[in-house]
Amino acid sequence: MLKAALLSLLAFLGLVRGFDLAALPAPAGAQNGASATERQALRALTSDVSKGGVTIEGERLFTVGKDLPWNAIAKRIDNLARERGAKPVALPGADPGKKLAQAWRAGDGRGVMVAMVRTPGGGAVAYFGVRFTGD
């Protein structure tokens, strides 16, 4: 708790780059935005893999091409998360390769979930700022 408070203070003072939605780089070559259908599918995926264990508090949506694999998207965020002290979360509904979603949790009970649904042109990707319910 003390660590979380200290991090919050340092973040407030601008001395710590937080692990939050705004700080994440977009996937390489991505276009901003996704269709309403894709957005709905991404939100449904998030709810499914987390078994309702997260509340979405913010979102950034992207469209990516076929040449960018899911692993490249998730790995970059994973490396940033670890660098900034966030920890990966085991998702209860995980199904590798079929449900493309990963989540990381920072010290304040909030975090980020990245999800992707496949589209004919490649994929729709969401960065969701989430709060982990049950805290």
Partner: peptide, 15 residues
């Protein structure tokens, strides 16, 4: 093994 080096994010991205 990705078959690409895009989205590495370390200033040397290449397809």
């Amino acid at each position: 093994p990705w078959s690409t080096n895009m989205n590495v994010g370390e200033g040397h991205d290449t397809a």
